[in-house]
Design a protein around this nucleic acid. Structure first.
Lengths: 204, 204
DNA sequence: CAGCTTATGACACTGAGTGTCTTTATGGAA
DNA sequence: TTCCATAAAGACACTCAGTGTCATAAGCTG
C-alpha cells in the first residue's frame, strides 16, 4: 500500500513530486483561468507531471482546492487538545475557542481567503463541503462525546456547529475583514446543548 | 424559455414524458443495481426515452434522487405560512414546528426513507446536499429575517438549522422508527438565537 | 393545408475519473 | 559492482457524466 508512512521507507524509487507545489500551481491556474476552464490535463502539464501522477496525489479536482484546508482542521485539533486539559467551561465553549484559535494559528490567511473565495463561488466546490468537512466533523463529534454529551445530541450539535462555522468562513472570505474570529464567534454562538449538557455523566 | 408556465401553454408539440415516472424508474434501478452501477443511458433506456431527453428533465444524475425531496420543502413552507399568521412564539419554534408538520404532511414516508437511505450511503449524493438544500435554506433564511432576526445571525442560525435537520433526516432514514418527528425536534433544539432574538424590531 | 411552436432525439464532443501495464529510479543483497 | 526487490511515474485505453448543435416529430392556430 503506497502513500503511507512517508517516514520509514528506504526502498523503491524515491518521490520526486511535491504535492504542495502541485496544489499551488493548480490554485494559480484556477485564479488565472477559472476553475472550470482549467482541466486536470492543464494542471499536470503546468506542474510538469503526468495526468495519472496528478491523480495519484489528488483523487479529484476539488481535492486540489480543499486539500489545503487540512491545516485549519489540524490547528483546531491542536488547540482543542491543548485546552482539553485546562479549563473545561462547557463542551461548546471549548470547541468555539479551538476553532477561533485554530484560525489564528493559520500561517497565511490570504491564501486561506483565496481558497475559500474560490470554494464559495463554485457549485462543485461548495458541494464538496459535506465530504471535505468530514474530518472536522469527526474531531468535533469526538470532543462532544468525550465531554459526556449524549450521542444523539452530540451528532446534531456537531452538524449544526459545522454548518454554522462553514458559513462563517465563507462570509469572512467574501469580505475584506482581516480577522475571521468575530465571524466564527458569532456563528458558533447559535449552537447550544439543550437539557443535560456539560461534563457531568457519561450517558450514552 | 421552456419549462416555465406549465399552465397556459396551448401551442407546440405536447409533452409526452412524465418526469415523476422517470424518476420512479430511476429509483428502482438504483435500488436494484446500485447508484453507481446505473448509468444515465440505462435509465433513459428503461424509461423508454432518449438520453438527451432525460437530461432535459434532470440536469444531473443526483437530481433524479434529490428532486423527490422538493415536496418536503414545499410542505414545510406551507406549514410555515399557515403558522406565520397564528401564534409567533419565537422564530425558531415556528421553524421547528413547520419542519415537523411538513414531514407529517408527506404522502409516502416509505419512499422518503428509501430516498434518504440512498443519499446517506453515497458520497456523490451526500455531497449534493449543499446544493439540494438550497431552497430549504432560502425559505428558512427568509423566515428568520422576516421575524426581525439580524441578518448575520439569521444566516448562521439558518446554516446550523439546515445542518442539524439534514442530520436528523439521515438518522431517521437509517433506522426503522416510523415517525421522524422526534429526530427533527431533537435536532432543531440545538439551535438558538443569542441575544436580541424574537420579533421585536427590524434591525437589518 | 401552411406555418408556427415546442418536445424529442441523434450525433459528436469535452473532460473527470479509473484500471492496466510498462518504465524508471533507488537501496540493499549477492 | 551487479542484480533484484520495491515503489514512483507515466503511457494508454476506457467508461460515463454532462453539453452543444442540429434535425425531426407533433401538436395548435389561421
Amino acid at each position: 500500500m503506497p502513500t503511507v508512512e512517508p517516514a520509514t521507507r528506504s526502498t523503491g524509487r524515491p518521490v520526486t513530486i511535491d504535492p504542495e507545489s502541485v496544489a499551488r500551481v493548480a490554485m494559480e491556474l484556477f485564479s488565472r483561468d477559472g476553475y472550470e476552464n482549467t482541466s486536470m490535463e492543464d494542471i499536470a502539464r503546468a506542474a510538469g507531471i503526468g495526468r495519472k501522477s496528478l491523480y495519484r496525489y489528488f483523487a479529484t479536482k476539488a481535492d486540489l482546492v480543499w486539500g489545503g484546508t487540512e491545516p485549519a482542521v489540524e490547528a483546531s485539533v491542536v488547540q482543542l487538545e491543548a485546552g482539553a486539559a485546562g479549563r473545561a467551561d462547557d463542551p461548546l465553549s471549548a470547541l468555539r475557542q479551538s476553532v477561533v484559535a485554530g484560525a489564528a494559528a493559520l500561517p497565511d490567511l490570504a491564501v486561506t481567503r483565496a481558497r475559500l473565495r474560490l470554494i464559495g463561488t463554485h457549485r462543485d466546490l461548495l458541494n464538496r463541503s459535506y465530504e471535505a468537512l468530514g474530518s472536522q466533523r469527526d474531531v468535533t463529534l469526538e470532543h462532544l462525546k468525550a465531554a459526556g454529551v449524549p450521542a444523539a445530541t452530540a451528532r446534531y450539535a456537531c452538524a449544526a456547529f459545522i454548518g454554522a462555522t462553514f458559513q462563517a468562513w465563507l462570509e469572512w472570505a467574501a469580505g475584506n475583514d482581516p480577522d475571521p474570529a468575530p465571524y466564527l464567534e458569532a456563528a458558533t454562538a447559535v449552537v447550544r446543548l439543550p437539557q443535560g449538557h456539560g461534563s457531568v455523566g457519561k450517558q450514552l
